Simulated scan of single mutants.
Amino acid sequence: MFSAPARRAVRTALAACVLLILGLTSAPAVADPIGDSPTAKLEHLADLSRRSEQANEALHQAGIDLDARIAEQHELDARAAADHDTLAAAQVEVARFKPTVDKLAQANYRGSRTNRLFAVMVSDSPQQLLDQMVMLDVLGAQTDREIEGFRRATDAAAAAASASRKSAEAARVAAEQAQALRDDLQRQETELESQIAAVLDAFDNLSDEEKSILAGTPFPPGLDADRIMEHLIPGNGAGALRAALTRIGDPYVWGATGPDQFDCSGLVVWAYQQVGKTVPRSSQAQAQGGTPVSRDNLQPGDVIIFYNDASHVGIYAGDGNIVHASTFGVPVKVQAMDSFPFHSARRY
């Protein structure tokens, strides 16, 4: 599954890569932007790839959002069920006290006399009076308890009914929102599939030489994996960087998380999995996790996010370089981080 920011990220990343490889600072003016010149074709592919990467990463984020909403829906469903059970129990308690309360109401309606003055008036002897007084005390205390119990049960039932209505409504809204996210996810998947088809068609239109130019070299001049790992500081970041460097040359594939093909955030996920650490699936979510790191304090293994929509990501390799799954047609490689507009950095 792929997101909309991912598609755009792929295009921009590829465009930057192409311009960097070709040593161009601006594209030559052409009447037809999808012309037959190598430059025009590469730029067209770069544009398509950038959009597909943005869409890809946005799709990952949409999946994360949907999972969170489904979890919320399940929690609200459980709460609604519990509130319904509480209401049912409260109603049973009300029913338990109701017969006594009804009898009292009927007795008062009929004018029954159960006070001490009435006992004095109808007693034939002191002993009968005492007996009636004791009975009235017992009945009075029992009645008070029954009435108080009925009041508490009625209040509890009213509160439970209100809570049950609210939780049921919240669960209904969450279910509707989850369905809306599902629908949007399906729409984004369809759009990405269309964009991927366009990228593949444009790539097939390249010559072998143009594909080679697009792919570039796995490392900047004078740099290799051994040199990068010489000065690594032990830790999660260093371990993730070591893992990522073992994937140099693997292809970029939308939605892939390894072990031998990746998209940009998928490479970060896989690399950190190798050191037992879980990071979010999308570049946007990766930009929110971990601990913020300033550009001046980067360490090898830090996660670097690019573009204002946080739609591309790589792992800092030191000396101003990143290892990343760049874009379609460009294998996993080490490249200068200045090739892309810096967004932020996180340490996991």
Rank of each mutant, 00 (worst) to 15 (best):
P99V: 11
V323S: 05
V92R: 14
Y316L: 07
L181G: 08
D32K: 12
A158P: 02
Q61A: 14
C264I: 00
W254T: 03
V134T: 13
A168I: 01
A89S: 07
A16L: 00
L87K: 08
A310C: 05
W254Q: 00
E72L: 15
M229V: 12
A31G: 15
D124V: 12
H60Q: 12
R11M: 00
M229K: 15
A336C: 02
I233T: 15
V122W: 10
L232M: 06
A243N: 00
T257G: 06
D201G: 06
D263G: 05
Q288C: 03
E193N: 09
E189N: 14
L45S: 07
L66I: 09
A141H: 12
G314C: 04
P259M: 02
T86K: 05
V101K: 09
C17H: 07
A81K: 13
D83A: 14
I322H: 02
A170H: 10
A197L: 06
F118P: 02
Q299V: 13
R152I: 12
V323Y: 05
A161I: 00
D226L: 10
V134K: 11
A27Q: 12
L241N: 02
A163P: 06
A68C: 00
V92A: 13
G258M: 06
E189P: 04
A31N: 14
R347H: 14
R69Y: 00
I196G: 02
Y307K: 06
A287P: 10
A27Y: 03
Q54E: 11
L241A: 02
H44L: 09
V275D: 01
V323G: 03
A78F: 06
R187N: 11
V18F: 01
I147R: 12
Q132F: 05
Q127W: 08
R152P: 01
Y316A: 06
V303E: 05
A197G: 11
D250V: 02
T327M: 03
F342I: 04
L14N: 02
P220E: 03
N297L: 09
A107N: 13
T12Y: 06
R281E: 10
Q54N: 04
T39R: 03
R145C: 00
Q186D: 15
L241F: 04
A82S: 12
Q284R: 13
E72Y: 05
T217C: 01
A317G: 05
I304T: 08
S37N: 07
V313N: 03
A62G: 15
Q73D: 07
Q288R: 15
V30G: 10
G149S: 01
S26H: 08
Y109M: 11
E43C: 05
V92Q: 14
M121W: 13
A174Y: 07
A27K: 10
P221W: 05
S26E: 13
F306N: 01
M133F: 15
D224L: 09
I147H: 01
V101S: 08
R110I: 08
Q195R: 12
R79G: 08
G320N: 08
A202S: 11
I34H: 13
L76E: 05
D201W: 00
A80Y: 09
F219C: 03
F2N: 09
T39M: 03
D102A: 15
A170L: 14
L76V: 07
E57D: 14
H231K: 14
S311I: 01
R295H: 10
A156S: 11
E146I: 00
L298T: 12
E57F: 10
A80Q: 05
K211L: 00
G314H: 04
